[in-house]
Design a protein around this nucleic acid. Structure first.
Lengths: 143, 143
DNA sequence: TTTAATGGGTCAATCATATTGACACAATAA
DNA sequence: TTATTGTGTCAATATGATTGACCCATTAAA
């Protein structure tokens, strides 16, 4: 009777997840570092990019950090004009956040780098592998 | 002509990698937190576990952090008797590090949690998916 | 055998990022 | 008018990381 726990396969999978994730985030990290930005900024760019005109509160909830922790990187992105805010017309308390053109360009560059990497990987692995990989990751994500 | 860059597939893959990785590390993080440990400790336990009797310098190289950054968590693991060190017989300057029995138990518990999660995931995804996933992740890791 | 290099450890100063708590201000809702 | 909401900021504190300067003991080289 074989205990499937800690099989060679699983031990390799653990290793692969660590290494794969690192390899996946490495390019973006380098691109960000050039501008003095980090993953916190990236997360903001990402969520603002995918949630146009969302409020600061929305962003706080998405990032699950404190108001004070958000303050610094968000202010930097605003002053670098990568993100802009305007008051909501129906409620002037609310600031709606969106990417500026250059913010969009940066976000796109970060996403493109990762997207290109994935293209290379899936091309090398073959089309069936891509579907299976998605299936596995979807299950893992929702667990 | 379709630009495969930033296809829906790829955008989903990026999202899945983030979410999947978070889900993958969540259990271990919780287990560690209970003992007042964090990912730094986990990394040390991991590398010491897989590199029995390695030196401090080996560990430093593997973790790619400064001597001073290693100092605190390693000292904690030593004082908690999860890691032990003994001088090398051929060179008394070198400290060889290894897990104690309870260090091994903790490391195994962390690994088991991840391994179990992967078992569940792969079981649900089917056997072919597992192989494909490994293929993709191997390529990604080595890129 | 004196001297230099190596492995390991620590102190100090500093930086970055995060936290909680306490407020302040303007705008909206009750 | 008063209370609540959305946003922003100050202060104190905690953690984890950095670089730089050393120290000790041991081993290697001169």
């Amino acid at each position: 009777m074989i205990d499937p726990l800690n099989s060679k396969q699983n031990l390799e999978a653990i290793e692969l997840l660590y290494r794969g994730y690192r390899s996946f985030t490495a390019q973006a990290d380098r691109l960000l570092e050039k501008r003095g930005l980090n993953r916190a900024h990236h997360r903001i760019l990402y969520f603002v990019g995918r949630n146009r005109d969302g409020s600061v509160a929305d962003l706080l909830e998405a990032l699950a950090i404190s108001k004070q922790a958000l303050n610094t990187p968000l202010r930097q992105l605003l002053s670098m004009e990568l993100v802009e805010s305007k008051r909501a017309s129906h409620d002037a308390r609310i600031k709606m956040l969106r990417l500026t053109p250059s913010g969009k360009r940066l976000e796109a560059r970060l996403t493109d780098a990762q997207s290109e990497l994935l293209n290379t990987v899936f091309e090398e692995a073959g089309p069936n592998a891509e579907d299976s990989w998605h299936t596995v990751m979807r299950i893992l994500s929702d667990t």
